[in-house]
Write a protein that binds this DNA or RNA. Structure first.
Length: 289
DNA sequence: CGTATTTGACCTCG
DNA sequence: CGAGGTCAAATACG
């Protein structure tokens, strides 16, 4: 049956959300940085920060069960419908409002999060110029995955506010495989081919639209949802840890960047402790195990 | 021709 | 009754 989120699961979610926030802040710091040119370091560091953000989103999506999403019920399980409309029009309405909470994240450049989504609706929201887009997992039909998300672009800038509902029971990170155009879209944001060049030498064994490479040993992970789901969470966490560690290494090994590190630590005091959060990421695997 | 997206209608909730 | 969420026919696309 549905996996009930454990207390460590909630803790992990909280940490992820906090950490994501911090990584986002770190990213905007990189936007504003006026450091002397430091070879390719800014690109790589920036890339890593982006990857952390990306991993956070995926981890959040993977962990976002227990929000009530799994409890959606069909109002009319069988085609017992009112007389005045075709039964197909009334048989599948879902009851979703009222108490269902989602995990909300913000993405700066792209609404991609490593999962495969199919759009099923779009709605103009009162008081908002940008429409809200509705997606469900592409594997909904194949494996009954009930994960959904809502995406809304903020008017001021290109920040996507993404709210996740339900959890992925398909166990697949489907967009991880062969989405070159999306990767390009992402690479452009780094202003160089750094990330692409990084692929071959990368020790990371997963891949996404942010330029990492995924090696999947199991071609169809949808077959055993529960185990694969946990495996996936573990993979995302491991990826996150690896990248966070590299950010810390990068930031502390060059002097201009240790200067920046100092700035981060200053900021840390006043805000939500970005470096502490990254350290905390590194411990997240213990929470997930 | 199969699959994904668009879009208008329908449904539920507050 | 209006706003938001979802469905599914129509349409676009490869």
């Amino acid at each position: 049956m549905k996996r009930v989120m454990s207390a460590p699961g909630f803790a992990a979610l909280e940490i992820l959300a906090k950490g994501r926030e911090s990584a986002e802040a770190l990213n905007s710091m990189l936007d504003q940085q006026q450091l002397p040119e430091v070879s390719t370091m800014p690109h790589e560091l920036r890339g890593l920060v982006e990857q952390i953000l990306h991993c956070c989103d995926r981890a959040l999506a993977a962990l976002s069960g227990g929000t009530g999403g799994g409890t959606c019920k069909k109002r009319n399980p069988e085609h017992g419908s009112p007389v005045d409309l075709p039964c197909t029009m009334r048989s599948k309405r879902l009851r979703v409002r009222g108490g269902e909470r989602g995990i909300q994240v913000q993405k700066k450049w792209t609404m991609e999060d490593g999962f495969a989504w199919r759009k099923y609706g779009q709605k103009n929201i009162h008081g908002s110029k940008q429409p809200r887009l509705y997606f469900h997992c592409s594997y909904k039909d194949d494996s009954g995955c009930m994960a959904r998300r809502q995406v809304q672009q903020s008017e001021a800038n290109s920040v996507y506010v993404i709210t996740y509902f339900g959890e992925h029971t398909c166990g697949v990170d489907a967009t991880a495989i062969g989405h070159d155009e999306k990767m390009e879209q992402f690479v452009i944001n780094f202003g160089s081919g750094t990330m692409v060049a990084q692929q071959s030498g990368s020790p990371w064994s997963s891949c996404d639209d942010d330029g990492l490479v995924v090696n999947r040993e199991t071609p169809d992970l949808c077959n055993s949802p529960k185990d694969e789901e946990e495996l996936q969470e573990g993979m995302v966490a491991a990826e996150l840890i690896e990248q966070s560690t590299r950010v810390l290494e990068l930031m502390s090994m060059s002097s201009p960047w240790s200067e920046h590190l100092g700035r981060c630590q200053e900021w840390e005091v006043g805000h939500s402790k970005s470096l502490f959060d990254i350290d905390e990421f590194i411990n997240i695997d213990s929470l997930l195990q």
